[in-house]
Amino acid sequence: MSEHKPITISDEVIINKIYLVRGQKIMIDRDLAEMYGVETRILNQAIKRNEKRFPPDFMFQLSAVELSDWKSQNVISNKEKMGLRKLPYAFTEQGVAMLSSVLNSETAIEVNIQIIRIFTRVRQLLTDHTELRLEVEKIKKKLDNQDKNMEVVFQYLDELLEKKDDSNTGRTIIGYQIGSGQS
């Protein structure tokens, strides 16, 4: 019996392989195949044999436009583009989780666990970011209201100054006057 060596893929490598397509966080079939240590065609054959496990919310094929956008966003070299003769499949978090039941190897299981943990962390980061953004919006609204209140205060002060200036015109000025020529 051979001893199994644990697979080590850095979290950063996995995070850099998660893309946003159709408003969903996905991973591409060739990236997953590489992490699992299998050829992309082998991965896709296993999926075809288990099509019922991959509904459209688990997996979908990229369109030509989406593939072009993905390539341009990720600056794929010509050598890497050569390996993309077919439109790749995109897997959502649920699809990645389902892959562990289709690819029943130690490597696939270990990599899947790591990927699912990272998806969970990314989701938590997005949730935290959303909560922070909502707090910032609340502060902005308060500041906007304070700005409006300050404008009202200055308008009232301007009106009071105008009234004061108007009321001074009919009064006789009293007091010591310099340079009037009187002794």
Rank of each mutant, 00 (worst) to 15 (best):
R49H: 12
Q177S: 14
I7G: 00
L62V: 09
K164D: 01
Y176R: 06
G37Q: 01
R30H: 06
V136K: 06
K52E: 02
K141G: 09
I14G: 05
I118K: 01
S63Q: 08
R133I: 07
F119S: 00
E51G: 02
N50P: 04
S10N: 06
F58N: 14
S2M: 15
Q24K: 10
L62H: 06
I116H: 00
L132Y: 00
I47V: 12
D165S: 08
S10W: 09
R85T: 04
P6M: 05
N78I: 06
A64C: 04
E3R: 11
A33E: 09
S183K: 13
T172H: 14
K164G: 06
P88R: 00
N44T: 03
D57W: 08
P88A: 01
K81Y: 02
V96G: 00
I14A: 03
Y156L: 10
I7E: 07
V38C: 13
E106S: 14
R49D: 05
R121N: 11
G179Q: 10
V38R: 06
E12S: 03
S100R: 09
L134W: 04
E131P: 05
I7S: 02
L62A: 13
S10F: 11
R53V: 13
S101K: 12
E93A: 04
N145L: 14
T107G: 14
L160Y: 01
I139D: 14
K164C: 04
N112W: 01
D29N: 04
G95Y: 00
V102Y: 01
A97M: 10
L84K: 02
L143N: 13
S100K: 14
V75P: 14
E135F: 00
L103R: 13
K79F: 03
T107N: 13
N74C: 12
G37N: 12
I14H: 00
F119Y: 04
K5H: 14
S63E: 15
V75Y: 02
P55T: 10
M35I: 01
K140Y: 06
E110M: 07
M150C: 11
L32P: 03
D147T: 07
L134G: 09
I7F: 08
G37M: 03
V102L: 14
N44Y: 08
N145T: 12
Q45H: 15
D31A: 15
V136D: 03
L125V: 02
E110H: 15
D128Y: 11
E106G: 12
E151P: 02
S10V: 02
L20M: 14
I174L: 08
R121K: 11
D57A: 00
F154R: 02
M59D: 05
T8L: 07
D147E: 09
V38E: 05
K163H: 10
E66M: 15
T172A: 12
E93I: 09
V13P: 01
K81P: 00
K163Q: 05
L143K: 10
E34W: 06
T107F: 04
H129G: 11
L125R: 01
Q61C: 13
R30F: 01
T130F: 10
V96E: 05
V75R: 12
K86N: 13
K141E: 04
Y19D: 09
S183P: 07
I76P: 03
Q155H: 12
R49Y: 14
L32K: 03
G83A: 12
E80P: 02
L32D: 01
T169S: 07
M35D: 06
M35H: 07
N145S: 10
R133V: 08
R53A: 12
L62W: 00
L161F: 07
I115S: 00
G181F: 11
I113N: 10
L32I: 10
A97G: 15
